[in-house]
Design a protein around this nucleic acid. Structure first.
Lengths: 209, 209
DNA sequence: TGTGGAAGTAAACGGTCGTTTACATTATGG
DNA sequence: CCATAATGTAAACGACCGTTTACTTCCACA
């Protein structure tokens, strides 16, 4: 037993690719099977239904996300440590995290396709809307707001929007761009500018308080 | 003759509402008709096909867009007039334009639904991708880049991204937010900050050159 | 007052949908 | 070597798809 392992994976990846392009409803089970060069009956040996494939993709992303969160261990820092050195280190971490995150959502094939799929499904019910916000919208925005607040940056929500918004925009522009390297370097430049600006704001605020 | 006029419009608006929620392929002709309390045969008195409804929506948006462009006449300014007063006026126009634009894409019902529909269809072929970029992506971004270049702002593309990105992000957050007024006021605050920042940059660059 | 055309209904068309069933093939472990 | 389970095919299922057709309803206008 336990001979396969490959086909099930290929089904999941192919389905994700099609879901990301056309949306869940617009993709047919026959279409997925056709891309794989098999008949649709074969799919039902590995998944109970079309919806089951979709939910396996969601579960896969959740697993990937947890793994990446472990690798990048940004501090659950207490607000108590407010020395400037700690503040600076947190801000540096944030900028690096931003760069990594942007590359992840654009250049990692699974993550990029998952992002597109979520984008297409975000208005279909409260559950998908919540997932979209969690992964790409108010989720990262709120996370960065907390980080900035911890780092002692004044008006952290406003600054978080300033920090995260260019990455969010450039993801969409990247998708439709002919010159993707330009979008990538533009994202890096913007983040570098933010690093300097945030440090300046924090320094000023730290000296005052 | 010329008795109806209402039903055709109701079909278009209902179809747009459903397309914006579920995507074109996921919406059935029967579904549209059901929402209107008629049978699907009635739809074919007013539109040749389902695709015809979709294209009528695109045409309607194009018309609306042209009308709004006339009302807001931002200058096709020549780069020659580089006096500071003109620069400041252009920047003020830009900020006002940004606020108006944000409200348009979020609070105007037709525009908001059209934006969502485009978002769901953006990966289905080059044509829809180009439309999405034109209305919401690289289109506004390039337009603002030109305006900033005209106003004498250095590194206009980078600044345009900084200016436009928060509006773009907050549109998506707005869609999933419980407190939409907060998203709206946050957008206004960010734009006001940009007004001051851009004027400072321009002034400095103008005094140098 | 009668007529023509516009608006809507009900039913049917061929096709595709997601899913199930019956059957063929393959590979493996006792 | 053979039973057995895994894997895949082909066909069929009822439901729904977009679209067309035939028939009704109804009102404007000569």
């Amino acid at each position: 037993m336990e001979a396969m392992g490959d086909t099930k994976e290929r089904i999941l990846l192919t389905a994700l690719r099609l879901f990301a392009r056309d949306g869940y409803e617009a993709v047919s089970v026959s279409g997925i099977a056709g891309e794989l060069g098999v008949t649709k009956g074969a799919l039902y040996r590995h998944y109970r239904s079309k919806r089951d494939i979709f939910e396996s993709i969601l579960a896969r992303m959740e697993r990937r996300d947890a793994e990446q969160a472990d690798a990048h261990d940004l501090p659950e820092g207490t607000r108590e440590e407010t020395e400037d050195a700690y503040r600076g280190a947190t801000l540096d971490d944030m900028v690096d995290f931003g760069k990594t995150m942007f590359r992840y959502w654009t250049e990692d094939e699974f993550a990029s396709q998952f992002r597109k799929m979520l984008t297409l499904e975000q208005f279909r019910g409260a559950e998908m809307g919540a997932l979209y916000q969690q992964y790409l919208g108010s989720g990262p925005l709120g996370y960065m707001t907390d980080l900035l607040a911890t780092a002692g940056v004044p008006q952290p929500r406003r600054e978080a929007a300033r920090f995260y918004a260019p990455m969010f925009l450039l993801c969409s522009v990247y998708d439709g761009a002919e010159d993707r390297a330009a979008a990538l370097s533009l994202a890096d430049e913007l983040l570098e500018d933010e690093r300097a600006r945030l440090k300046a704001i924090t320094q000023k605020s730290g000296n005052e308080g």
